[in-house]
Amino acid sequence: MPHKHTPDKLRRQLIRAMAAAGLSIPCYPALYSVKAMAAMPASKTRILWLFQRLTGSRRLNHHFIKRLLVALEHEPSGTDHLRRVLNKLAPEPLDDGMMQLPIDIDALDDGERWFVQHLLVSLMTGIYFHEQRGNLTLSYRYALMHDALQDIRPVPGTCQQSFGFWQYPPV
């Protein structure tokens, strides 16, 4: 069953979850999107927890995640897939100790594996791959593949550093 929350209750839950997850407060306003959450099979906290577990990153940009959830919502089986994967990989109560464990691939059926890979590709590349409808760019700058290297080089296609920085090792 989808969780139903009043905005205030959700706000409190999110603040607690973000504090626990080490997320910054500026992430909060966009996470608080009742409309985007309406069709979701679980709370934003739980979904975010799943994404963090899958990627090993706590640096998920809120606009990026919101766009991903909207894209999933528009998939015929998007929310159903998400519910099944949440039940297996992010069971309640959420246990932060589990965050460090590899996901149990064998516990997933073929459809769930496909969906996990789809989520990972979306989160890592910032592009929601869709063969029929055409790809959707969720985020370029905050794609985790750029985030993985953000402290050593500028996001490709942007000019944030001065000439010749590449001749020195990253700090």
Binding site: I103, Q117, L120, M124
Partner: peptide, 22 residues
């Protein structure tokens, strides 16, 4: 990075902490 990322994710063995792995 793009093709390295998608290539890496083709193998479920790489799904744990993919950011670090990448």
């Amino acid at each position: 990075v793009m093709s390295q990322t998608t290539h890496m994710l083709n193998d479920p063995a790489n799904w744990h902490r993919p950011v670090e792995r990448l």
